[in-house]
Design a protein around this nucleic acid. Sequence first.
DNA 1: TCGTGGATTACCT
DNA 2: GGTAATCCACGAG
Length: 222
Amino acid sequence: MSNPVKRCRYFRPWWRTRFRPLTRHRPVAGPRSVLPREFFRAPASQVAPRLLGCVVRSGPVAVRITEVEAYDQSDPASHSFKGPTRARRTMFGPPGHLYVYFTYGMHFCGNLTCEDEGRGAGVLLRSGEVVDGLDVAWKRRGNAVPFRNLARGPARLAQAMGWTREDDGSDYLDSVTAGDPIEGISVGPRVGVANAADTPWRFWITDDRFVSAYRRHSSATP
DNA sequence: TCGTGGATTACCT
DNA sequence: GGTAATCCACGAG
């Protein structure tokens, strides 16, 4: 039993996956700087593109962020638009915290809160590339999931990170670190929102394979 | 690769 | 009681 491949139940060799894991060749190495609280105090639409390429860690799993969406209080599509409620109070809390919500009766999604306390703003983490804790992420997502889809999509990302209701309100200041510089940023309308779908507050890394497929909300006006 | 439809429940009106 | 910041399986081309 000296074969390390067989020791780990959830290890999957890259040649069994649809896409070659870039983590084998582009590891996140060395200490990374933690972003200051002031970083998250800015408007969500400014924080969102700056988060691209950053690495968010939850226990053993770390994800390089490739796609985000910004939401704030003046935004009809935002959970904070109608003011604070019990389920959405985290969004109105201090910046740099994790806001986890439950949607479609089965999925969790995670946001990083922005702006000053009392202002309901945040950045939805839509997609990412798992760069650490690959075995744990695969265990949570299922063995049959292709490497590319481990965290491609907000609910997939939340599942890979292991986020649930209990993580709502956690301070994530020490869990977000700067990443490698990125090539380019694309901007476009947000996904899955019925109101203000055309507000260009969705940001993603141009030509990155770890970006979710764009799908407009079924009842959104064309 | 793309489009379609079903699953399933917390939350607010 | 309707809506929802979604995912997955499946089929067609």
